[in-house]
């Protein structure tokens, strides 16, 4: 059982980090970024190229993944989402735009990096062994880094000037504007930060799970599930959603294995029941 719990915590830390960027963008701009998974994949491929192919230090590769995606995110916000939000009153417009960006990124990534699954050398070798728990050191490192990054992100949002401005923006866009917050600037920073998080997670996890061009869609779906569990647009909710999903997966795959692959079936049923009782998720607020 200890192994199941450790697996769940480790998966949860991964998932929470994936969901953070998605929920941040939603909170700031009310945009469901369907391209979040593709941004994760792009980040993974940047790390693969720099660390796996060019043999440069992993930390440098991770920084480059973050910066690349921050630029991509800022570009998307300024030149794509901002004009659409300004001209269209309908939420579907941004959703369609996000879906189009997802398809575009999918195609570009396939062209640039090919169809094969890619992997990089392990960042640390060896396995932690005890009587009840087996966990490779690189997974422990990635899990710890993920938790540190989540904590840093929460502190940044809580105490930095930029973080406060973005929180104000998330709470009430008009009020924040009236209080002197530069809405356009902080929207762009927020989108860049969300995309950067996706890129960094992709870069971080390429050392464990590798990366391939077609996984963006499934990653996005999982991220949406976590956000729905925790509550859309709430940072704490995304973290909680990530850990809950990770734990449910780990427990389900162990307890329900004799019945075939019904773990996700059970998770989806639980999610439907949960949302019918609590449509805003654990920590979400009613729309509008």
């Amino acid at each position: 059982m200890e192994q199941v719990v450790v697996n769940g915590l480790y998966l949860g830390a991964q998932y929470a980090l994936i969901a953070l960027g998605l929920t941040l963008i939603f909170a700031l701009m009310n945009v469901l970024n369907f391209a979040h998974g593709q941004m994760y994949v792009l980040g993974g491929f940047v790390t693969y190229t720099i660390y796996g192919q060019m043999k440069l230090p992993f930390v440098l590769a991770l920084v480059c993944s973050g910066l690349t995606l921050a630029v991509v995110g800022a570009f998307c916000e300024k030149f794509l989402f901002r004009p659409v939000i300004r001209r269209s009153k309908r939420d579907e417009s941004t959703m369609l735009l996000a879906a189009a960006i997802a398809f575009l990124l999918d195609a570009v990534i396939l062209l640039l990096f090919g169809e094969k699954q890619r992997g990089v050398p392990k960042i640390i070798n060896g396995v932690f062994l005890s009587d009840t728990i087996v966990m490779p050191y690189d997974r422990i490192v990635v899990g710890v880094v993920a938790i540190v990054m989540i904590a840093t992100f929460v502190l940044y949002m809580q105490y930095s000037k930029t973080g406060r401005a973005m929180r104000a923006l998330a709470q009430d866009r008009v009020a924040a504007q009236l209080m002197g917050v530069n809405v356009e600037r902080y929207s762009m920073i927020g989108f860049a930060l969300g995309a950067m998080l996706a890129g960094v997670v992709g870069g971080l996890l390429v050392t464990i799970t590798g990366i391939s061009s077609g996984i963006g869609g499934p990653i996005s779906i999982k991220a949406f599930m976590m956000v729905m569990i925790g509550g859309a647009g709430v940072v704490g909710g995304a973290i909680a959603g990530g850990f809950i999903l990770g734990m449910m997966e780990s427990v389900g795959l162990t307890v329900l294995r004799e019945f075939g692959d019904i773990t996700y079936l059970v998770i989806f049923v639980c999610l439907m029941v949960f949302l019918s009782i609590r449509p805003n998720g654990l920590m979400g607020k009613p729309w509008g």
Partner: peptide, 18 residues
Amino acid sequence: ANDTYQNDTRDFTPVLTP
């Protein structure tokens, strides 16, 4: 003979542990 996984699984540790 019954163990399965989602095709988009990225980390197989929980699947293979049992």
